[in-house]
Every structure is written in C-alpha cells, then in structure tokens.
C-alpha cells in the first residue's frame, strides 16, 4: 500500500511537472503545512513525515525544496548528493497532547506512566517520535510511559488525529499542532524536547524559485509567520548545518 502510495506520489509529482513546470514543488514535514500554505499558497506541496519524504526523494521524486523536522534527514540527503547543504529553519517544542475531554485525567507527564493509558507516538524514524523517545530515555518514568504506547503513527498529524478523536488518551506532538486542531487537543505539562527544522534546495530542482522560497522563509516575514504559528525562532536561522 505504501509502495502504491509512493509510486502514485512520484507519478503525480513527476507527471504534473511536465504540464506545469513553473510551479514550485515543496516537500515538507507535515507540521509545517499551515505556515507554508499561508505564506506561499501558490506552491505545490507534499506534506508527510520527514522520513517518508526523504524516501520519496531517494526514489527520484521531483521536488525543488525539502524541509524536514529534524536536521538528520536533510543532512543524510545532502551527504547522498540529493539536496544542497541544509540550513536551520526554526525550532519547535515536542509536547504532550490530550483530548479536550481528557477523560483519563492527564495533567503531567507522570500521569502517562499510569498503567492502561493509551498513548500514541510517531513511528521510529519520524522526527516527532524520535525526539520524544530520546527525551523519555533520559526520564526515569520513560520505560513505563513507552509501555503504554498502543500505536506508532507514520506522521505527527496522524498522532494528533487519534488524540483529537478521543481514541488515544495522550500523544506526543509539536506545540504548533495544537492550534490547528481547533480546540480538540490540549497541551499539558510543558515542553518535552526541542526539535530543529532544516530546509534545503533539491539539487535537481528549479534553483531560482526554490532559492526565493527558502530566502523568504528565512527572512523576517517567514520567521514572523513561523513565530505566529508557535514555532521557536532563533537568531541562528539560516545557519548551514553540517
């Protein structure tokens, strides 16, 4: 199924490219969807888990810009010669989210360690999941918390959806995912980890448009929009990553 979806995505992106070469194609972590669509509504977007997008690029998908929720995926793609040197875009906070109804009565991270809590987390390889796991490894309650995981989702928006539906009692997502969920999920217990976002030009892509897009996101206008959406902006934005 994933193969089919991947093939379809590649075919769609590649196929459409012929008809409309001028349009900028951006592959971005799903947590960036609101900001990017608001700032640049005319671009064509493929929002998914950063790791899934990296796989699509390796399989030859046609894109101009890649923005990932962890520097790792972008740095790997750079090493493989698929993207240019990535630059720091912004940061985000990984937080614990619960449904508005919060029937399980979760107020702090410690509550998630209670037996029987249904916790959802992004799958290994998906940045939102990896950041949370790293933080939990350093936490004495980490093992008890991870024992409550009932599902590993393929991107962070799927985590938020399961929590918003009330099917899961809690999930790990980004602070920026709380507001777009329109009140269906609530953040509790403060930030768990800091996530860094990277942005890079795709080597085979349309250089001029892509460069303009990246510069715009790194310029005060883009950083302001990211800040407004709940991202953490940093004076280091634009710093090349190793």
């Amino acid at each position: 199924m994933r193969l089919a979806a991947l093939a379809l995505a590649v075919a769609l992106v590649a196929g459409c490219g012929g008809a409309d070469d001028e349009q900028l194609t951006v592959f971005a972590a799903s947590s960036l969807s609101e900001v990017f669509e608001q700032l640049e509504p005319d671009a064509r977007y493929n929002f998914a888990g950063s790791d899934e997008l990296a796989t699509q690029l390796r399989e030859g998908a046609d894109a101009d810009v890649y923005a990932s929720a962890s520097p790792g995926h972008a740095v790997d793609l750079h090493r493989e010669g698929i993207v240019e040197r990535p630059r720091l875009l912004a940061a985000n906070q990984v937080v614990l989210v619960v449904p508005r109804s919060n029937r399980a009565g979760i107020e702090t991270l410690a509550d998630v360690a209670r037996p029987g809590i249904r916790l959802v987390i992004a799958a290994p390889g998906v940045p939102a999941g990896d950041y949370a796991r790293e933080a939990l490894e350093r936490d004495p309650r980490g093992d008890a918390i991870l024992a409550n995981v009932v599902s590993e989702e393929q991107d962070v928006k799927a985590v938020v959806a399961k929590v918003a539906l009330g099917e899961a009692d809690a999930g790990f997502a980004y602070r920026t995912d709380v507001e777009p969920a329109a009140g269906d999920v609530v953040e509790v217990g403060g930030a768990l980890a800091r996530a860094e976002y990277a942005i890079a030009l795709v080597r085979e892509g349309d250089r001029d448009d892509a460069e303009r897009f990246v510069e715009r996101m790194l310029a005060p206008e883009g950083q302001q929009a990211l800040l407004g959406a709940g991202f953490v902006t940093t004076s280091e934005a634009g710093r090349p990553l190793p």
Partner: peptide
C-alpha cells in the same frame, strides 16, 4: 486499529512502516 509492532501491525502495515526504515523488509 492503529499500528503497533506485535499487536496490530499486520504485514501490509509493516510494509508501510518499514519502507523508510528497512526497505528490504518492506
């Protein structure tokens, strides 16, 4: 049912989950 290894992750779900982790397994 969600997707959790050993519990609800069936073979098709594992293909989806492993695609970007271990392509050979997928």
């Amino acid at each position: 049912a969600g997707s959790f290894p050993g519990e609800t992750r069936t073979a098709p779900l594992a293909i989806y989950a492993e695609l970007d982790r271990d392509f050979d397994v997928a």
